[in-house]
Computed example of a mutant assay.
Amino acid sequence: MNEKMEKSQEECHNPKRTKDVSLQELRDKLAEFASVRGWDQFHSPRNLLLALVGEVGELSEIFQWKGEVAKGLPNWSSDDKEHLEEEISDVLLYLVRLADVCGLDLGQAALSKLVKNAQKYPV
C-alpha cells in the first residue's frame, strides 16, 4: 500500500475531533476510496441516489418510535448516539459522492440555496 493510502486509512480510522472537515476534503477522500476499490463503475447518479435513500431510511428507523426527541439527545445512551452518528454520516457521504459524480459543487449549491431561502422567507 502506498504512503498516501496508508495516511488516508489512518485518518479514516482515527479522525481528529478538533479539525473541521470541508466538503471538498470529503469529496476527495470518497473519490479516492471508490477509485482504489474499483467502485466507480457502480457509482452512477441513480445507484448513489438509491443508496442515499436507503441510508435515509436507516436514519429514519432510529427515530421511528421515539416520539419527540430533545435537542442534544440527553436521554440517549452513548451506543444510541454512536448509531445515529454512523447513519447520519452514511447519508452525508452518499450525498457528497452523488454531488461529485453529478459534477456539482455541493457547498456552493447549499450557500446559493440559503440565499434563495432567505429571499423566499424574509425575516
Results as ranks from 00 to 15, higher is better:
Asn47Ser: 13
Trp39Ile: 10
Val21Tyr: 07
Asp79Val: 10
Tyr94Phe: 15
Lys81Cys: 12
Lys116Arg: 11
Leu98Asn: 02
Asp79Gly: 03
Glu6Ile: 14
Asp28Ala: 14
Leu50Arg: 09
Val69Lys: 07
Leu95Glu: 06
His83Gln: 14
Cys12Phe: 12
Gly72Gln: 06
Asn117Ile: 06
Val21Arg: 07
Lys66Tyr: 00
Gly67Met: 08
Gly72Leu: 04
Gln9Asp: 11
Lys81Phe: 07
Leu50Lys: 02
Met1Tyr: 13
Pro122Phe: 06
Val96Asn: 04
Glu82Met: 11
Gly107Arg: 10
Asp40Glu: 14
Asn47Cys: 05
Leu30Pro: 03
Ala51Val: 00
Phe33Gln: 09
Lys66Trp: 04
Ser77Tyr: 10
Arg27Lys: 15
His83Asp: 12
Leu93Arg: 02
Gly67Asp: 08
Leu111Phe: 03
Leu84Lys: 06
Pro74Asn: 00
Glu3Gly: 00
Arg46Tyr: 11
Lys16Cys: 10
Ala99Asn: 05
Asp20Val: 02
Tyr94Glu: 00
Val123Asp: 13
His13Arg: 15
Leu50Glu: 14
Asp20Phe: 12
Val69Cys: 13
Leu26Pro: 01
Val101Ala: 05
Leu114Lys: 13
Leu92Arg: 05
Tyr121Glu: 04
Pro122Met: 09
Ile62Pro: 00
Phe33Asp: 15
Cys12Leu: 15
Ala110Gly: 01
Leu106Thr: 05
Asn117Met: 12
Val123Glu: 12
